[in-house]
Computed example of a mutant assay.
Amino acid sequence: MITRATLHRTVAAALEEDAPWGDITSQALLPEDARATADLIAREPGVFSGGDVFAAAFALTDPAIRVDLHLADGDRFESGDALASVSGPARGILTAERVALNFTQRMSGIATLTAAYADAVEGTGVRIADTRKTTPGLRDFERHAVLSGGGSNHRRTLSDAVMAKDNHLEVLRQGGQDLATALREALARLPHTTHVVVEVDRLDQLTAVLDGGADTVLLDNFSLEDLRTAVALMAGRATAEASGGVTLESVRAIAETGVQVISVGALTHSARALDLGLDVRIG
């Protein structure tokens, strides 16, 4: 969820970065009373995300600018479709243009990639989830885009859930601590509502993790055969989550092993910005 405070703070910072002393091109070239109408046009098909962010870029630049969104976040579109219209003072529209596009192109790119993964596992009941591999400062925006594309959100921050990964387990091992015991002791200290995830990369780690009381076991870089074996061994004692090297080509086969969640870092760290343009109407 993007709160109003986060939306305004982040977009305002982007506008400040792009025009710290104003848009000197528009101020020098365009009459102060010049007006314009422009359309947000898709240059390729995709899934829309970031409508409120797009509108905020213009509203924070000049409240006199009007933005009409033609799609809701999560709607699909084709190349050539008009996704939104902007009208008002021309200086303000051109000052906000790049920031508005940067956010919307990035978020729609994430939504489009997420939708491709969600479509690939349709009918399996498996959730496609993001990770914390997000752009610093833009996590809420990128997580929202994942939801727009039909995906699910993982934990938002380190404060939201326990997630013991390979480095945590290695520190325990070097200290001579038994994993199952360490997990049980941690659970005793935590609020009962705290979700506990433990990452494993070998089948022989499963027994200790399950005995320790993990809610979710993250099966990292497992082969399809080992995923099926792990799901059978877990027997519903914890949620089975697959991760590591997941691609559009492999995600369906992974889903069919019986896991409940597939986490994909590429949704946010490798999504390509969608090609969108803001075109001023002629005449």
Rank of each mutant, 00 (worst) to 15 (best):
R132C: 06
V47Q: 01
T135N: 11
H269G: 04
H8L: 12
R184A: 12
R155I: 12
R91D: 03
T112G: 10
S79A: 15
A129L: 15
G212W: 08
V231E: 08
F58M: 07
R281D: 09
N102S: 13
A271G: 00
V196R: 05
A55V: 07
Y117S: 08
G150I: 08
A180Y: 01
E241N: 07
R155L: 10
I65P: 11
H192K: 11
A34Y: 08
L227S: 05
A19Y: 12
N221H: 12
A161L: 01
T37I: 13
V162I: 10
A57M: 05
A266E: 04
N153R: 06
M163E: 03
V67H: 04
L267V: 07
L224K: 03
V264H: 04
D215K: 00
L276C: 09
V251E: 01
G212K: 13
R9T: 09
L158T: 13
A238I: 10
S87G: 09
R66P: 06
P31E: 13
A100M: 10
N167V: 12
A255E: 05
D140M: 14
K133P: 14
A120M: 02
V86Q: 07
R127A: 14
A55M: 08
V86C: 07
N153Q: 08
V231A: 11
T239H: 04
F48Y: 08
P89L: 02
A266W: 01
R76E: 14
L206R: 09
E17M: 08
R91N: 02
L94D: 04
N221P: 05
A255R: 05
D178M: 00
V251S: 03
L60Y: 02
S108L: 11
V53P: 03
T61V: 11
E225Q: 14
S79E: 15
A90N: 02
L267C: 03
M107K: 07
T239A: 07
A13N: 08
V47N: 00
S159F: 14
P20L: 13
L15Q: 02
V200L: 11
T239W: 07
G22E: 14
A34F: 06
L179C: 00
T194N: 03
E225T: 14
A36Y: 09
G176M: 09
V99D: 03
R127K: 14
G213K: 05
T124V: 04
L267Y: 01
G176F: 02
D33W: 06
G80S: 03
G137A: 11
D160K: 02
G22W: 11
E170L: 15
A242D: 02
A232G: 15
D226Y: 09
V198K: 00
V86P: 14
F222N: 11
A214D: 05
N221W: 05
S263A: 11
I2D: 11
G92V: 13
V261H: 10
L224Q: 00
R237Q: 15
F48K: 04
T95G: 12
T247K: 09
A145Y: 11
G176D: 07
A36I: 06
T95W: 06
R202L: 10
G151K: 08
M107F: 11
E17T: 12
T25D: 08
A28V: 02
S243Q: 00
T268V: 11
A90H: 09
L274K: 02
V251R: 00
R139D: 04
R35D: 04
D18V: 13
T134S: 11
Q27L: 15
L218W: 01
N221Y: 03
